[in-house]
């Protein structure tokens, strides 16, 4: 936490004035004196214990062969059996590959498109139109993935979807059964993801752009720098910190996929699984549809552990670059 050095400076001056000089301020008496503040933590602490910490003990399920007669904790231990099964079939490879590949594409594209749109939008002079454009690109962010699933179906439906009926048919091309042909989804999913999130990313960069000192640009203009030069030599370098931080934070989450995008947008279609199955959808499906608790928790723990390492690594890097943007 960044505030630890402030800790040292403040309490020395503040409590000594207000409280009577306690001979040896002990841990308990300090807590008691500030009980109001510690009490404020309590609802949250209680919540975290129930919602987050108790389930953490549940990771032992991954090492058990859970059956309902013995109950969760009474079921026999099976060591790494669930993991062995997960990694011996090609499931682990497919879901890991898909999760990493899609997220990498998403991160790169959102970075490039977000920065580009923000810079260009910042150049639009017409105030009203600029606001309209921003609202328009931000709109998809507000729709739930169920709605997005409907929209995609409107475009890719087999019989009357817009693409088959209004683009391919007039061109005299064969209709495509989009929901049965996995290879197309390598492109469809990144397009949908970009459509939904590019507005959001560009707003982050636009907010950063708005904070830049206009004098820098005026000075550059006096020196005869073109618009392009200003963007390359002033705007982009100034945006670098935000770009690096958002990208590194996204890399820290690269092992977690957007469940809705990969589950509902392809309508959970079986034939598409080779290119749409990611760790999160796999965990959900093996657990609640196929009912194999052991396999699902093994995959979940695999995700949790690798994700943990990735966050630690990226946070170390973020700390190196800019301390105040590090998570811890």
């Amino acid at each position: 936490m960044k505030a630890t050095h402030a800790d040292v400076a403040l309490p020395a001056s503040v409590p000594s004035r207000t409280s009577p000089p306690a001979p040896r301020p002990s841990f308990l008496s300090y807590i008691w004196r500030h009980k109001a503040l510690y009490l404020m933590f309590m609802p949250g602490v209680l919540y975290l214990i129930v919602n987050n910490y108790i389930p953490m003990f549940g990771v032992v399920i991954a090492f058990k062969n859970v059956n309902y007669t013995d109950g969760i904790f009474g079921s026999p231990w099976v060591g790494f059996y669930n993991f062995k099964y997960l990694f011996l079939t090609n499931h682990a490879w497919v879901i890991t590959r898909n999760t990493l590949a899609y997220n990498s594409v998403f991160i790169l594209f959102n970075l490039a498109a977000g920065v580009t749109i923000a810079i260009l939008l910042n150049e639009v002079r017409h105030k009203l139109l600029s606001r309209f454009y921003q609202s328009a690109v931000f709109l998809p962010y507000f729709l739930s993935m169920v709605v997005v699933g409907y929209i995609v179906l409107g475009f890719l439906g087999m019989d009357s979807g817009f693409v088959n009926k209004s683009i391919l048919e007039p061109l005299g091309l064969e209709r495509i059964d989009w929901y049965a042909e996995p290879s197309y989804w390598i492109f469809i999913l990144p397009i949908v993801n970009a459509w939904k999130y590019v507005g959001y990313t560009s707003v982050i960069y636009l907010a950063a752009l708005a904070g830049f000192d206009p004098e820098l640009y005026e000075a550059a203009k006096l020196d005869g720098a073109s618009k392009w030069k200003q963007i390359v030599h002033i705007t982009i370098p100034l945006l670098f910190p935000v770009m690096i931080i958002t990208t590194l934070l996204a890399i820290g989450r690269i092992f977690y996929a957007d469940f809705g995008l990969f589950y509902q947008v392809p309508l959970n279609a079986g034939p598409l699984l080779p290119t749409t199955d990611v760790i999160d959808t796999y965990v959900y499906r093996t657990f609640l549809i196929n009912g194999s608790i052991g396999m699902s928790s093994a995959a979940g723990l695999y995700q949790g552990l690798v994700g943990f390492v990735l966050v630690l690594v990226t946070n170390t890097i973020v700390r190196r670059i800019s301390k105040e943007n590090a998570l811890f």
Binding site: V50, N52, V59, V283, S297, G300, L301, G304, V311
Partner: peptide, 12 residues
């Protein structure tokens, strides 16, 4: 940074 995953959370 870390969570127990879907299964234990669901069971709780």
């Amino acid at each position: 940074l870390f969570n127990g995953g879907l299964v234990p959370w669901y069971l709780v």
